[in-house]
């Protein structure tokens, strides 16, 4: 049985976590921590309840700069119409995370800090060059999201540090993004493969692109060489295919109950091509605004 500490300020939370390093676990939405506690995955003397730190929640959009508080609920991301238009991958990732109930409870910070390799949010944030803000007893720091992850269930946060916000850039126009995944069920499932892509276009050429992967390595991956394959021209089946192949080569999936490594690599290639194509259609205005893609990205006209 764990004791509960309810800090009233961020400083109090950080101070307590630092002075109880190794014996205190932060809890926000609780959807991961409560399971870990019951199954023995986490044993802790103290739970530090962050849920009353209201200032850590919120979606602030200032021009192209988006700041998401760590306690922002996944459900809040899912239903935000600005994000649906300008950070579609984020909404497409949010809407497939657990159930409505789970999304109502779960927080963005919790999803990132639990560091599950198959987590939905990291790839969708990585394609927006997300940076995380971190508070600790020694002050604040920030680092690229990709550097937050150290391995399955492990982050690079120091004892006592808390993730407080995520900052990302969401272009106002001529840009598109997409998050797709492979699952067994069409809802309430973990990704066997998760793929996010984003791009900005100028005229008919892609000027910047990002490809990120989930569930196919010990940590979420950003794959610059895959994105580079499509930069500099319009998206073609050939450039998308090359990007897919590079992404498949870059990942290191395991074989488990959710498919073999070879299968996952093949799916990475396919989903990267589809995500790029949908992002392209969005960036070029050929996709209905706000319409979310089928979760596997299979479009009706796609040939067998």
């Amino acid at each position: 049985m764990a004791e509960l500490f309810v800090p009233q300020t961020l400083d109090e939370a950080v101070g307590f976590l630092e002075s109880h390093a190794g014996s205190a676990t932060p809890i926000a939405g609780g959807t991961d921590v409560m399971i870990d506690l019951r199954t023995g995955g986490v044993r802790t003397e103290w739970l530090v309840d962050l849920s009353s730190l209201g200032s850590l929640a919120g979606i602030d959009l200032d021009g192209e700069q988006l700041r998401l508080g760590a306690l922002t609920k996944i459900r809040a991301l899912e239903v935000d119409s600005r994000l649906a238009r300008r950070a579609t991958a984020l909404v497409e990732a949010a809407r497939v995370l657990g159930s409505v109930q789970i999304r109502t409870m779960a927080t963005l910070g919790g999803n990132l800090c639990h560091a599950t390799p198959s987590a939905e949010m990291p790839p969708a944030l990585l394609v927006h060059d997300a940076v995380v803000e971190i508070a600790g007893a020694a002050g604040e720091r920030s680092l690229p999201l990709a550097d937050l992850f150290a391995g399955p269930g492990r982050t690079t946060l120091e004892p006592g540090e808390l993730l407080t916000a995520v900052r990302l850039r969401i272009p106002a126009s001529a840009a598109g993004s997409c998050y797709l995944r492979q699952t067994v069920r069409w809802s309430m499932d973990l990704a066997g493969v998760g793929v996010a892509a984003s791009m900005e276009v100028d005229g008919a050429a892609i000027v910047q692109a990002r490809v990120a992967l989930g569930a196919v390595a010990p940590v979420p991956l950003i794959v610059p060489e895959a994105a580079e394959a499509v930069v500099g021209s319009e998206l073609s089946p050939a450039t998308a295919l090359e990007a897919g192949a590079r992404a498949a080569a870059a990942c290191s999936p395991i074989s488990d109950v959710r498919g073999s490594a070879d299968y996952r690599r093949a799916v990475v290639s396919i989903l990267v091509q589809r995500a790029l194509r949908i992002a392209w259609l969005r960036a070029t205005g050929d996709w209905p605004e706000g319409l979310l893609a089928p979760i596997n990205g299979l479009l009706a006209e796609e040939p067998a």
């Binding site: 067994v184 069920r185 069409w186 809802s187 309430m188 499932d189 973990l190 488990d256 109950v257």
Partner: peptide, 21 residues
Amino acid sequence: IFDGEIVAPNLHDYGMPTTAD
């Protein structure tokens, strides 16, 4: 089942159909 053990005895991995399935 792997080595005689049910790998993930939970409703998540078991795969009972939802309203989406």
